[in-house]
């Protein structure tokens, strides 16, 4: 991967981006058990295949999401956080 298409700034050199790890649904801050917090903070699906993950465009301080295949290193889509629902398929647990 040499470049990444930032939803805000367009296609930029990969050196401008910082990887932010797998996307997870944040537990409900008021009711989550400590087990749920532990899983949210430490655990990952870490699949050999498609994953939705955070990326950060450093010069513009902009966080967004990417859908990427972790075996072929192909970026399938990059999108803003509020477009997440369109990219999550039925039983795709994130």
């Amino acid at each position: 991967m040499k470049t990444l298409n930032c939803p805000l700034n367009g296609r930029r050199n990969i050196t401008e981006f910082v990887y932010g790890g797998e996307y997870h649904m944040r537990p409900d801050a008021n009711n989550a058990s400590s087990t749920e917090w532990a899983e949210y903070v430490f655990f990952d699906r870490n699949p050999a295949g498609e994953v939705i993950e955070w990326w950060f465009h450093s010069p513009s301080a902009y966080w967004f999401l990417a859908k990427r295949n972790t075996v072929t290193d192909e970026v399938l889509a990059t999108f803003a956080f509020d477009e997440l629902a369109q990219h999550v398929e039925g039983d795709h647990h994130v």
Binding site: G21, E22, E39, F42, F43, D44, R45, N46, P47, A48, T70
Partner: peptide, 18 residues
Amino acid sequence: GMSSVVAKMAGLKLPIHA
């Protein structure tokens, strides 16, 4: 390196990143 993939076959999730 395949820890998460094999663990998943056993229904386990691990705090591991490849």
